[in-house]
Nucleic acid binder design. Structure first.
Length: 169
DNA sequence: AACATCTTCAACCGCCCGGCT
DNA sequence: GAGCCGGGCGGTTGAAGATGT
């Protein structure tokens, strides 16, 4: 309550981005880099709020963003990370180069979640629904935080990005 | 062919956190 | 230490396209 909105009141565009808006945003960021999102729209001549620009750039326009076609390896990794981290989409995205938190979140909600349910696995707890109540009780006692299902026997390694020739810019 | 229903995903909303004054 | 501000995050919405009847 009482919090000022993220951008000045007045007419800002909402909804889908027009090609011209994309081009303006790309051109501005190419020229000036990612700076202050709040002042960017005005500087770039866009009738958008800063948050909208940031989201559009990060999820769609960034040159290194990979879109669609999640591989089996990526799906497996997302499932493992979700069992460890829960809905920490940005953390999960950080381990998948070129993937954004928004895309992973969408992919989880539309594809992976359903896949797990069809296999009888609870997508929230990652516990198989075929477990008996006793088994579930044991699991919960071993894992009061509910962060990780022991039976998953995860082998997860998170490593820093390898400095490679792919350093663009 | 026309309409209804379902699915997908880009984008918005509001809250939280951390840096700055 | 307190308050403000901007950035970032996660949940949710709704338009557009796909599929079913």
């Amino acid at each position: 309550m009482g919090r000022t909105p993220c951008c000045e009141k007045g007419h800002t565009n909402k909804g889908a981005w027009a090609r011209e808006e994309d081009e303006r945003l790309i051109a501005y960021i190419r020229a000036h880099g990612e700076g202050c999102w709040r002042s960017l729209p005005k500087a770039a001549g866009l009738l958008r709020c800063g948050k909208s620009c940031r989201l559009r750039w990060i999820n769609y326009l960034r040159p290194d963003v990979k879109r669609g076609n999640f591989t089996d390896e990526e799906n497996d990794l997302i499932i493992k990370l979700h069992s460890l981290l829960g809905n920490k989409w940005s953390k999960i995205a950080a381990t998948l180069p070129g993937r954004t938190d928004n895309e992973i979140k969408n992919h989880w909600n539309t594809h992976i979640k359903r896949k797990l349910v069809s296999k009888g696995v609870d997508p929230t707890t990652h516990v198989s629904s075929t477990k008996t109540n006793n088994e579930l009780t044991c699991i919960n006692q071993n894992n009061p935080e509910g962060e990780k299902s022991p039976e998953l026997n995860l082998e997860l390694r998170i490593s820093l990005p390898v400095p490679s020739s792919s350093t663009s810019i």
